[in-house]
Each structure stands twice: as C-alpha cells, then as structure tokens.
Write a protein that binds this DNA or RNA. Structure first.
Lengths: 172, 172
DNA sequence: ACTGAGGGCTGCGGATTTCGCAGAAGTGGG
DNA sequence: CCCACTTCTGCGAAATCCGCAGCCCTCAGT
C-alpha cells in the first residue's frame, strides 16, 4: 500500500531540493507525504497519517511538531473572505525604486497585507490586501502603500469573485 | 473573559452581512469567533474553542462540521512551495473577450491553477499557478492558458520570493 | 392559544487520539 | 571503539473526539 514511500525513505538520505532556495530546511519524502496528508485534512489523526506514510504515531507527531516549529507549514482554517461576507479585497502590483526587499518588508508589516511576493515582470511586488470596506481599501492603497519610501507606482485589481482556492499541490 | 461574545450572541439574531454576496451562508458572531480560533491553530481542541467562545464542546463540534460541510472554511496545512523547494510559481493576469466567468471556470479546472479570482482593473482575471519547473511553467502559460477560448492576452509575474502569507484576517 | 416540526445546545458515556517518556537503533566525530 | 546526537518505537495515562438522548426555543399551521 505504502511500500513506495517506505522504500524511498531508507534509499535516499537527502533529495535534490533545497539547493535553489536560501535557507529552507531539507524535507525528505516522508515529510512530504505527511504534508500531503494534512493538506487533505488538517485534523487527520496522527495514527492515520502514520499508517499512510509507514511510520508510528509518535514519529508522525514528532515530525509534524518540528515542521510547525520550523515554520515549514502551518495548520489553519482558511476561508473565502468574500463568502464570509465582510471584507473588500484587492491585488496590488507595486513598482519600486531602490531596494525591493526593504519595501516588501514594510508592506508585510501592514496588517491589511495578507500576501506579499517579490516577482519578475512589470511589477516588482504583488500584494494582496484585505480591508473592512471601500473606504478602508482606498485609504490603504492611496495613503499607506504609496507612502512607503521606495514605492514608485501601484496598480490595483479589486476582487470581484474568488473562483478557486486550493492547497492541494503535490497531491495530484 | 468571553462574556462579550456570549452577550453578543443573544443580543443579535442576525448581523448585517450576507447582503452583498450571492448565496453565502449567514455567519453569526459565534461562528466567526470559532473560525478565528481555528485560524490561529487548526488543531485546537473543541473544548478549548468552546471555552473561548462560550459554547459547549459538542456545540462547537457541530458548528465546525457544518462550516466544513458548507464549504465556508477548510482546515488544511499550508506551506510556501518555494520554501518546500520543488515548484515554480507565477501570478498571471488574463484579459478576456466574451464571458469572463466561463474562462475562469476553464482555468480553475486546470490542476496547476491554485488560485483564480475575477478582478476589476486592467486584468479580468488573476491566476496563481504552481509548476514542476521552468519548462512546465512555460508550457502552462503559453500553451494551456492561452489556448482557452476567450483568452485575449496574458501577462506573467514569476515568483522570486514569498515574503508574507497569513490567514489571520479578522483576528487583528 | 395549542400543537408539532425543526434547529441548536447541553451532558454524558465509550471509543479514539494525543501526550510524555524510556528504551532501541542508526549516524557521525574524536 | 565510544560517545553524543538524532529519530523511531512502544506503551500507559490523560485528554479529546464522537454519537446519542433529552431539553429549549422558534416558527408555521390550525
């Protein structure tokens, strides 16, 4: 049933990942399998996960705790704020002059920013923001974000409808 | 400790939400409080949640189950794919001629699309895609997405570094 | 006003899961 | 070879999850 995962565990000490990113902890095939289990159901019991990946309940528990401590993953409830019904959302593309990373940090410090990513392309930064209402949204975009030193320009995309939201990569 | 939440539960039968979105179930203050608890820790025991929101363990369990069944929220493990180390990601802005929603559905059906949202602004759709490697990314953007009927043009923003990723709205 | 249906909450056992710890097994450095 | 370190296993105790029966409240219908 799960012999493939078990076999790969002892066969490979380290896989080829981790080489490109700067500082991420190494993940073996078993931890990946555990993460996939928890992507399907964040409350799945450790014993069930252990059966699926070929480990004891206690071992799964240790690895999950370490993954959480290291910040590799987090187990949380996610919702569509628009469905929940009380927020205005937008994606904002940002162009920066000077140090992009410091601007990204400044934006990430804002509580309204839920998602900040550095990109290649006609924007240097993409930022997802969540607001109370239209006034709040306007304030955040035109006052707060544009006020950050180094922000040259912004372009906003107000959310009309969220069509898909998954966290199942690696499971397909 | 939690008297504010308890008081508000009996004080208001329904709050003013749900009016703007098309079909989302109504959420009262207690369900919101439960969701906030699970946004902090998706594995928090029902009894602890009940103590925080002023409900019995069984009642919390019923509500959580209903929220999951209704699709209002999901409890999952989330990671930064770049930290995990084995994917290429990009945000793609899409312009559409004709029916935007049908194009959105077509893109949402693709397994590489993790996030699809209809927007107002210079893009009709924003799509986040997750790929194996650069070749896969190129293939998805230039062949698969552009091949969808109604797609007029696309613009890509390859992810360089994810700076922030939270699910804590409503908790601040 | 009475009644019956429906939804939601509580309390309570029994089954299951989580938790902490001690011991075993594998690994690398001195 | 031995020691320090890490990781896995097994197991009992404590906590949690789960299903169920009963109660309360609301709301239509008569």
């Amino acid at each position: 049933m799960h012999s493939d995962v078990v076999a790969s565990r002892s066969a490979e000490h380290r896989d080829s990942r981790e080489s490109r990113n700067g500082g991420g902890p190494t993940l073996d095939a078993v931890s990946l399998a555990i993460i996939e289990q928890l992507q399907e159901d964040g409350r799945r019991p450790y014993a069930a996960i252990g059966k699926a990946v070929g480990l004891s309940e206690a071992a799964v528990r240790q690895r999950v705790q370490k993954l959480l401590d290291q910040g590799v993953m987090q187990i949380v409830a996610v919702t569509d704020p628009l469905t929940v019904g009380f927020r205005r959302q937008a994606m904002v593309g940002v162009n920066v002059e000077g140090d992009v990373e410091s601007v990204a940090d400044a934006l990430a410090a804002m509580s309204e920013c839920e998602y900040v990513v550095m990109t290649a392309g006609s924007f240097d930064l993409m930022v997802e923001i969540v607001c109370e209402d239209d006034d709040h949204l306007l304030d955040v975009i035109n006052k707060r974000i544009r006020a950050v030193p180094g922000v040259r320009s912004t372009e906003s995309f107000v959310y009309l409808k969220l069509k898909k939201q998954t966290y199942m990569w690696g499971t397909r």
